[in-house]
């Protein structure tokens, strides 16, 4: 099994380069993350990437795999054309090898006030929510903040500090849609202007790459609709 992997260590390398690796007989059903771990353990310890859960729930190991962003731990080797070309998530500064600096991504996440805001006094028990109201959050709350979507989005590449990007906007939607949240007006107002929300041109790259099958474009369009209604 052949791999071409992006390498860059600012400590040692003047510029990035691609390095070839080969793994003899990978186990059946092997995921890309397992292959990377094996390369690191047996061929080159200095190969650097993030990982934690190994099962697609923590969002650590987003990377660009044969041109498409995805999580290494849930990408079967068998599904990939060789040599498997692996690069860091595009559009963010590279720290080392497959590790990118996510500061801007987190900044955008924090910008949408991603927390429940309730101004009324809290009851002694749970805030009521019907199963139908709760269903509105399906497809929104499951996001694992892997950044696969935002770093595949051209609008985010051009203006990462102005356009919030699909991941942050999906979270904005998650709280706007929550029947318990009391800050909808404030949240919508904060998304006004040509950039934060409206830079999304519905190119749908984000939808194609989301490893959790979420649909940021739909969430963004829902917010847009609410903005239009609000301005009438």
């Amino acid at each position: 099994m052949k791999f071409r992997i992006y390498r860059y260590n600012p400590d040692a390398d003047k510029k990035p380069y691609m390095q070839d690796f080969e793994l003899a007989d990978p186990e059946p059903g092997m995921m890309l993350l397992a292959a990377l771990l094996k390369i690191k353990d047996t061929i080159d310890e200095s190969l650097s990437f993030r990982r934690s859960c190994g099962e697609g729930v923590c969002g650590s190991d987003g990377m660009n795999i044969n041109g498409i962003n995805g999580l290494a731990c849930v990408t079967p080797l068998a599904s990939l054309k060789q040599p498997i070309e692996i690069r860091p998530l595009p559009g963010l500064p590279v720290v080392r090898d497959l590790i990118v600096d996510m500061d801007q991504f987190w900044q955008n996440y924090r910008d949408v006030k991603p927390y429940l805001i309730v101004n009324d006094p809290m009851p002694e028990v749970e805030l009521p929510q019907t199963p139908q109201q709760r269903e509105q959050l399906d497809g929104l709350y499951e996001c694992i903040l892997c950044a696969c979507c935002s770093t595949q989005c051209p609008s985010f590449w051009w203006n990462p500090d102005k356009y919030l990007g699909p991941a942050a906007l999906l979270q904005a939607s998650r709280f706007i849609e929550d029947s318990r949240d009391q800050a909808t007006e404030e949240r919508l107002a904060a998304l006004e202007g040509p950039f934060k929300l409206f830079r999304c041109h519905s190119i749908m790259n984000c939808v194609q790459v989301c490893p959790k099958g979420l649909n940021p474009t739909r969430a963004i369009n829902n917010i847009k609709k609410m903005m239009v209604k609000r301005s009438l």
Binding site: Y115, L116, V118, M122, E124, V125, E126, L127, P128, Q129, T130, P131, Q133, R134, L137, Y141, F175, D178, R180
Partner: peptide, 18 residues
């Protein structure tokens, strides 16, 4: 649990909203 719910945890719900 109630605290978590107030923090925003999207618990699954029963028909009566609990």
């Amino acid at each position: 649990v109630y605290e978590l719910e107030h923090f925003g945890v999207p618990f699954s719900r029963l028909d009566n909203g609990s």
